[in-house]
Amino acid sequence: MRNLSKLAVRNLSKTFLTDEDESVKVLDSIDFEVKEGEFVSILGPSGCGKTTLLRIIAGLLRFSEGEILIDGVRVGLGHNRIGFIFQQESLFPWRTVRGNIEFGLELKGMSEGMKQDLLEKMLDLIGMTEYQDNLPHEISGGQARKTEMARSLITTPDILVADEPLSNLDAQTRNFLQEELLRIRERTGSTVLFVSHNVDETVFLSDRILVLSNIPARIIAEYTIDIPKPRDRTSPECLSYRSQILEVLRAEREKILNDRATQRPQVSI
């Protein structure tokens, strides 16, 4: 049933040209699919091109080879079928919480009445109704992330793509937001592609985990996390997945160290 997958990334490669006209291959034949309603995470060593992969999927960056299909339709630069949560805080500081969330609807030119209705529901879903008139600098980091989530989800994108959205938060806020993310997703039924460097987090959240190699990134391992949600982070099953994945990542890190010893040029993206 290959054609029924929500997102299909086929043989995707990306080569950058450096300022010295050297070509650097960042992604090497990445091939995976995400099914409707699935939560897939991508893990990988830092600087392996995870963000590049996501930006390509979101239509923000060109790719060199391969194809990307959403609902079986090829997409390229500038498509708007994905909701993106960026690594750094990205709320517009000149708009209130409400103004930020309605941004996508505004671009679509939606009528005030319909906007109002969707907004109310979304604010209620993320529990920010009482903060709707606050400006981004008046809310907490966790609330800002939830607002970004709502801004991405309100236009009902085909896939929600998140690039390490919780990496800059303290541990407690992060755990809370992981639960919130699952709860919100339960309600919206969104398909999620989630990038992280936190193994614990991905095991807690995902239906499936893809592990990327060092640059040029390939998929070197895939895990289907067969534990019913909600999960207990400290259960033996979770811990077993964690240690397996950590082992794969450790092996990759050692390769980098060996490569340094043989002086292959390192590129950080």
């Binding site: 994905i82 909701g83 960026f86 801004r151 236009t155």
Partner: peptide
């Protein structure tokens, strides 16, 4: 202008 703000707009097809 923060590049990420422009990127956000682009993901909405601005």
């Amino acid at each position: 202008t923060e590049p990420v703000h422009v990127d956000v707009a682009k993901t909405f097809g601005a």
